[in-house]
Amino acid sequence: MRRAIRDNALGLCFLLLFLLSLAGQSVSGLAAFNEEQVAQGGAPISWAAYVTSSDFGVDVAENWQSEYLQFFLYILITVWLVQRGSPESKEPGEEGQESDADQKVGRHAGADSPAWARAGGWRLTLFSHSLGAVMGLIFVLSWLAQSVAGVAAYDAERLSRLEDPVGWTTYVTSAEFWNRTLQNWQSEFLAVASMVLLAVFLRERGSPQSKKVGDPHAAPVPGR
């Protein structure tokens, strides 16, 4: 058990941080929601009612879709675009999907390679793009969840003002929806750009996301 925890410590740490932050969001979000409810003459709701509400759902899904969009695009774009000296990038001249030998697929696969890396046809093609495909799928599902929860919350707000509700199509083409969505997208893209560029010139000793402290700024990253 101790070795399993050590070998998976990074993933477990971030899953724990995720659960703690999600719980914190539910508590603080409930407090803010009930404060607004009372200010408008309404009754406060329970925690269970809040975490199953469209208001909570849209806030969670909105963050998820932007995060998975960031990873989906980064996985695909870094196949073809490079940033010299950045540990987040391949080196110039290595653009593209690389050879079968480089990727250890087909007859170049090792004895311990995944079975589908040794296979051909559709299985190899699917496995070769499985990471991007899954990240893209989660992004699409999160985006749909955001739009469904968002239109429910938006319509509830309109009804409270005695205005007619709108349909899903109207909502996802509205300024309200895209204002919320693009707020998240721009912050994700800025964060990725900052990591790619700052990692060329700055270091974090011992981190696999950083070059060695003594590496020149424009030096190739060993093993990349």
Score class of each variant (00 low, 15 high):
35 E>C: 08
216 P>S: 05
202 L>K: 08
114 P>W: 07
66 S>N: 13
214 G>L: 07
53 S>R: 00
154 Y>P: 02
113 S>A: 12
144 L>E: 02
9 A>S: 13
29 G>T: 03
136 G>N: 02
25 Q>N: 13
35 E>S: 13
46 S>H: 04
26 S>W: 10
82 V>W: 05
94 E>F: 11
81 L>C: 10
203 R>G: 01
71 F>C: 04
134 V>N: 01
105 V>T: 01
107 R>F: 12
149 A>W: 08
14 F>R: 02
33 F>S: 08
34 N>I: 06
79 V>T: 08
60 V>K: 03
127 F>S: 06
44 P>R: 02
53 S>D: 01
133 A>D: 05
165 P>V: 06
19 L>Y: 09
111 A>D: 14
9 A>P: 03
70 Q>K: 14
31 A>W: 14
167 G>R: 05
144 L>K: 03
167 G>Q: 07
85 G>D: 00
79 V>Y: 12
192 V>S: 05
14 F>N: 03
142 S>I: 07
173 T>S: 07
76 L>E: 09
97 Q>F: 15
25 Q>C: 10
16 L>P: 03
81 L>E: 07
224 R>F: 09
22 L>V: 12
101 A>P: 01
21 S>K: 09
139 F>D: 00
144 L>Y: 10
183 Q>H: 12
95 E>S: 05
9 A>T: 07
92 P>E: 07
16 L>N: 05
74 Y>V: 11
139 F>R: 00
47 W>G: 02
110 G>W: 09
70 Q>W: 15
24 G>Q: 07
222 P>M: 06
6 R>T: 12
206 G>D: 03
2 R>E: 15
221 V>N: 01
110 G>S: 01
83 Q>K: 12
102 D>H: 12
157 E>R: 11
83 Q>M: 15
27 V>C: 08
88 E>R: 14
219 A>K: 00
23 A>C: 09
1 M>R: 10
223 G>W: 07
56 F>G: 00
86 S>K: 02
120 G>P: 02
90 K>W: 08
96 G>R: 06
192 V>A: 09
40 Q>E: 13
145 A>F: 10
33 F>V: 08
123 R>N: 05
187 S>L: 15
7 D>W: 11
80 W>S: 04
140 V>D: 00
19 L>T: 08
97 Q>L: 15
86 S>L: 03
208 P>H: 08
114 P>H: 05
60 V>L: 12
218 A>S: 11
157 E>K: 13
8 N>S: 09
164 D>T: 12
152 A>T: 09
53 S>Q: 05
8 N>Q: 08
42 G>M: 12
2 R>S: 12
110 G>A: 04
85 G>L: 06
80 W>V: 11
117 A>H: 05
158 R>D: 08
121 G>K: 04
204 E>K: 15
31 A>R: 12
186 Q>A: 14
113 S>N: 01
184 N>Y: 14
83 Q>C: 14
183 Q>R: 14
43 A>M: 13
132 G>E: 02
51 V>Y: 02
143 W>D: 04
177 F>C: 02
34 N>A: 00
21 S>I: 14
174 S>N: 04
214 G>C: 09
196 V>C: 02
89 S>Q: 02
219 A>V: 04
69 L>P: 00
178 W>Y: 10
